[in-house]
């Protein structure tokens, strides 16, 4: 867990090391999707949150995401040290002591939930607390090293931010909020498994049962396609409830078809297999990169519609 090799070198920690503990790249996506949930809730319900309160609620989501990231890095320091992709993280590189990272995670968890409660309501604060526990405990400590379905079930943690953003505005979580949850939930497996095709050897070495390790690369590529089909279907649900309008529908269909085409192409490659051509593995890396663009663009379409009043429900045009 946190027993690091004695040989790990110590170096003075910089502010950047503490920022790294918060997993800033994940945080960006979390904050963005939470903000979209918040803006969509205001637009759909007509309830306006004070801009400063909305900013503090968004900050709370960012801090909560960072807290969960720090707890994850504390727990996973032993396997991070053994994997090339993660060996330079602040704890395995010796910059930040493990117990300091845990303290930071726990303190930030408390601060984020407190700020969310003060700036909005207990429901949003409760959901934020639950999402931190979901990622930091349920995914990191229970699922990650226990089952190849770790990413599928654990994906729920990353799907909470738009629900939290919605709850911060309205104090409840209606169907539309859960549709946003479902989109991120369905997006996580193809997103992460595309990456795990490239890192499966390292996961196997440290005993993490990622899908390519337990079921092989071909099965993983099939599952990527399966979840991409589910994602495409789920991404069309906002059109039925009126949450997504014309702009969103065009984005969802075009982006979804592009993701589907890439997943079909990925299935035809040998990415992740022994002695797979470099171009095939590079293609898997491309699918991973596209998946990030996909989620940003899909939520950006929703944001544009609700922020600038450009939401023209498709069902009214039919």
């Amino acid at each position: 867990m946190t027993d690091l090799p004695i040989t790990s070198k110590s170096r003075p920690a910089t502010a950047g090391d503490y920022v790294q503990l918060l997993k800033p790249r994940i945080m960006m996506l979390v904050v963005f999707t939470a903000f979209v949930g918040l803006v969509a809730a205001e637009s759909v319900t007509g309830i306006q949150m004070h801009p400063v309160m909305a900013a503090i609620a968004t900050l709370a989501v960012a801090l909560g995401s960072g807290a969960a990231g720090a707890i994850n890095m504390w727990y996973d320091a032993d396997i991070d040290a053994e994997m090339k992709r993660t060996a330079t993280r602040p704890i395995p590189s010796g910059a930040v002591p493990a117990d300091e990272a845990l303290s930071m995670g726990l303190i930030l968890s408390g601060v984020s939930v407190l700020l969310m409660w003060l700036a909005s309501n207990w429901l949003a604060a409760g959901l934020l607390a639950f999402s931190i526990v979901y990622y930091g405990v349920i995914y990191t400590m229970w699922l990650k090293r226990a089952t190849p379905q770790n990413i599928v079930i654990g994906g729920g943690a990353g799907a909470f931010p738009p629900v939290i953003g919605w709850a911060a505005v309205t104090g409840n979580v209606p169907q539309d909020a859960w549709i946003l949850f479902a989109i991120i939930f369905m997006w996580t497996p193809p997103h992460f498994w595309a990456l795990s095709l490239l890192a499966h050897k390292e996961y196997a070495r440290v005993g993490v049962p990622m899908l390519p390790v337990t079921h092989g690369a071909r099965h993983t590529r099939r599952q990527v396609l399966f979840y991409t089909v589910l994602l495409l279907a789920t991404s069309l649900l906002p059109l039925m409830t009126g949450l997504g309008g014309v702009i969103y529908s065009v984005a969802a269909i075009l982006l979804g078809l592009a993701f589907l085409a890439l997943s079909i192409q990925l299935l035809r490659t040998r990415a992740g297999e022994e002695e797979a051509p470099a171009a095939h593995n590079k293609f898997a890396a491309g699918v991973f990169a596209f998946s990030i663009f996909y989620l940003f663009a899909l939520f950006a379409a929703l944001l544009v519609e609700h922020l600038f009043g450009l939401s023209f429900p498709v069902r009214e045009l039919l």
Binding site: H50, V52, M53, I56, L59, L115, L118, A119
Partner: peptide
């Protein structure tokens, strides 16, 4: 500052 702002609002 955040807590102060929340209180004032």
């Amino acid at each position: 500052v955040a807590v102060l702002a929340i209180t004032m609002i």
